[in-house]
């Protein structure tokens, strides 16, 4: 199951009986609430609420990334094909944000909204390479953020989905490094 499944489909298997058979779980109050589709009730003070909080922090960062790429695209500093890359990557971040927001709602949370204004170091961005390096830094940070989030999700499907986004951000980071003439994959591990 992925964020998409969380966002667009039922949070849990439709058949309660099937779920019980497949999981072998002893039903707790939390599980009962989840099975009843009451995620927000189930979330009261437990890990599901924490998961929604992690997703909301990720959402805020994704919304900022969308805004950052918009600034880059409108800066006049990017030429094709770098401009096309930026717009494509912005689209990915928008997709991440959309599905994160839907998942947070599914879990009973209130999705973070985009800020009316973001402060980016635009005065330091003088040319295409500056813009691409700035974007690469954001993508590298996103890789680290998702890497740090994966182990703290209580729900392993959410952890898997976060790892999927991590992979996408890592590809962005590598391609942006390549675009400015740096070794695209600087090490065997990310941190």
């Amino acid at each position: 199951m992925s964020f998409l499944a969380f966002a667009n489909g039922p949070l849990l298997p439709a058949s309660r009986r099937g779920f019980l058979k497949s999981s072998g779980l002893l039903l707790s109050g939390t599980a009962v609430a989840l099975l009843a589709g009451r995620e927000s009730l189930a979330a009261g003070g437990n890990a599901t609420e924490a998961d929604a909080r992690i997703l909301n922090t990720a959402l805020a960062a994704e919304l900022e990334a969308v805004a950052a790429y918009q600034v880059g695209a409108e800066s006049g500093l990017l030429q094709k094909p770098a401009l096309d890359l930026a717009i494509t990557f912005q689209g990915h971040h928008r997709e991440h944000a959309d599905v994160l927001a839907k998942t947070i709602e599914k879990l009973g949370g209130k999705p973070a909204a985009a800020k009316a204004r973001y402060d980016f170091p635009t005065a330091k961005l003088k040319n295409q390479a500056d813009v691409l390096r700035f974007a690469a830094a954001l993508e590298k940070g996103a890789v680290s953020a998702y890497l740090g989030a994966v182990p703290v999700f209580a729900n392993r499907d959410l952890a898997k989905a976060a790892a999927s986004i991590l992979g996408d951000e890592a590809m962005h980071w590598a391609i942006l490094r390549q675009a400015v003439g740096e070794m695209p994959v600087p090490s065997a591990f990310v941190a």
Binding site: T57, A60, A61, E64, A65, Y118, D119, A137, L138, K140, G141, A142, S144, A145, G148, A191
Partner: peptide, 16 residues
Amino acid sequence: YERCFACHSLENDRAG
């Protein structure tokens, strides 16, 4: 500190 860039900067409030 580059690991923190998705959410933080020194000068500005971001996701963090």
